[in-house]
Amino acid sequence: MSDRLKTLADAGVSIWLDDLSRERVESGNLATLVAERSVVGVTTNPTIFAGAIANGERYDAQVRQLVEKGADVDEVIFELTTEDVRNACDILAPVHQEAAWDGRVSIEVEPTLATDTEGTIASAQRLWQAVDRPNALIKIPATREGIPAITAVIAQGISVNVTLIFSVERYRAVMDAYMSGLEQARDAGLDLSTIHSVASFFVSRVDTEIDKRLEAIGGEEALGLRGQAAVANARLAYAAYQEVLQSDRWRQLAEAGANPQRPLWASTGVKNPDYSDTLYVTELVVAGTVNTMPEKTLDAVADHGEVHGDAVTGTAAEAQRVFDALTAVGIDLDDVFVALEDEGVEKFVGSWHELVETVRGQMGAAAQ
């Protein structure tokens, strides 16, 4: 086991892999990552599945069977992806049995429903029933329409990974939606201890967008702020999370058996080669959080990541100074977060279309 990854895990950070394929599941690779690299969870998205299916012969037989049965492309996607997630859940079941908040595998609602509350609720219900594993998480985007869907499915006892969170303001709305769902579940007599959630706060894309704007502004002061916004934003999000945990509302839910909605640092692959390739891991170490990494980032942390304990608690004032400085040089932070969410939803939908086209191509090959 990598000593560096073990140090990260010992600091209270849950390490999740941002990747899944049938090859990983069936070859034993995922089980090896769990045993040797401290991996205790998996996140997925349509782009990940598109890459896996395009390059994986292990899907061919199932695709052929589904085509022979007359399944359409949406049905084929549903069957392929839920099977992978179900099997990954089984591999991670021992982790889940040891610590219920981990051993989790996420699967996303259909991205074209990002602005459809009722459609999102229905998709989440169908995925939850199909995967049929207590350690699954259904990914729901934190769009305005997604927020009430989060409350509705949590109220039904479905565990949720809330995705596409960019701003602290939206994150507060997500935490409120989670607590509202828990309150409804409690009032309906559900066991709150069985309901889990993470809130996926996106990191690297914040630096990508703000750095671009800082470079357009130019000048020593603006350029000197590059590479600071993403970590500052995440640290402010964690401070908001701590506020919620200290509230009377949360204490009442905790007393009823509720689990905290853990912050999950997402989009942790570093886009700018001038920055440390472990930046969004080592600078966001704090107990009780999740860091989901692509394998390249996982390898970088294992090789040279320097973990020096809690890097987040007590940093809110410093993080706010970064935001104040960004505003002072002309960065419109509200506009940044609107742009990031719009782009996130666009990429979300685009990745779905990529998956549809990939599977359609595999179905065509299977029909020949």
Rank of each mutant, 00 (worst) to 15 (best):
M1G: 14
R4K: 10
L8W: 01
A9L: 02
D10C: 06
D10I: 12
A11Q: 00
W16E: 10
S21L: 09
R22A: 10
R22L: 13
E23Y: 09
R24T: 03
S27L: 07
S27I: 11
L30P: 14
A35S: 09
V39D: 02
V40Q: 10
V40R: 14
N45R: 00
T47M: 07
E68R: 02
D72N: 08
E79S: 15
L80K: 13
T82H: 14
T82V: 15
D84H: 15
A88V: 02
I91M: 05
P94Q: 04
H96Q: 07
V109D: 10
T112N: 10
T112E: 05
T115A: 08
I121L: 05
A122V: 10
Q125D: 06
P134A: 09
P134C: 02
L137M: 13
I138H: 01
R144V: 15
I147P: 01
I147S: 04
I150V: 14
I150S: 03
A152L: 00
I158Y: 01
V162G: 09
V162F: 12
L164F: 13
L164H: 15
F166H: 06
A173S: 14
Y178P: 02
L182N: 02
A185F: 07
D187V: 04
A188N: 07
D191S: 05
S193F: 07
S193P: 03
T194S: 08
I195W: 01
S197D: 12
S204V: 08
V206F: 13
V206G: 07
T208V: 14
T208N: 15
E209V: 12
G219C: 11
L223N: 11
R226G: 11
G227A: 07
Q228K: 14
L236R: 04
L236I: 12
Y238Q: 15
A239D: 04
Y241R: 14
V244Y: 12
V244E: 13
S247M: 13
S247E: 12
N259A: 01
N259D: 06
A266G: 09
V270P: 01
P273E: 00
S276V: 09
T278E: 04
Y280W: 04
E283C: 11
A287H: 03
V290G: 03
M293R: 04
D303E: 08
G305N: 03
D310C: 02
A311C: 00
T315Q: 06
A319Y: 11
D324S: 12
L326C: 06
I331F: 15
V336M: 10
A339R: 13
L340P: 03
E341S: 11
D342C: 01
V349E: 05
G350R: 08
V356C: 02
E357N: 12
T358K: 06
V359A: 01
R360C: 06
R360F: 07
G364Q: 10
A365Y: 02
A365C: 03
Q368A: 06
